[in-house]
């Protein structure tokens, strides 16, 4: 026989991530987090770059080879995208902290604006850096 306690303990957990429709609110929020973690790795790499430059020409050239490879360029491009998104989206958090733009239409509008501006700025700066 199932006691009431037994029943309470075996209660299932309702589906969450599995069923919740992606919202622009939560997608941009988790993307802010992803880009933040990604930028953390970028920061470590840039420390290595500065360190290798300080160590002399040998290590600097070796590092430069990696940076100029296809993988290196790809990563740098993603890093550029991440820093631009993280910075622009960060502005939204500043506005919200000051009680600005917290209605759902404003949130959606500003989110979309951040996405478009991120893509445009990343392309423009990418061209300036690699062309």
């Amino acid at each position: 026989m199932d006691t009431i306690e037994n029943k309470t303990n075996k209660r299932p957990l309702s589906p969450h991530l599995q069923i919740y429709k992606p919202q622009i609110t939560s997608i941009l929020s988790i993307f802010h987090r992803f880009t933040g973690v990604f930028l953390a790795f970028g920061l470590l790499l840039s420390v290595i770059f500065v360190f290798f430059t300080a160590m002399g020409e040998e290590t600097y050239k070796w590092w430069n080879c990696i940076v100029n490879s296809l993988v290196g360029k790809g990563l740098l491009f993603l890093w550029l995208l991440a820093i631009i998104f993280h910075a622009l989206n960060g502005v939204r958090y500043f506005l919200w902290d000051n009680d600005i733009g917290m209605s759902i239409p404003s949130v959606k509008w500003s989110g979309l604006f951040v996405c478009v501006l991120t893509l445009v700025l990343t392309c423009v700066l990418g061209i300036l850096i690699w062309m």
Binding site: V47, V50, F51, A54
Partner: peptide
């Protein structure tokens, strides 16, 4: 550690 490495490198240069 990493901030230390960065500062050390910058000071070296």
């Amino acid at each position: 550690i990493f901030a230390g490495i960065a500062i050390f490198s910058i000071l070296t240069m």
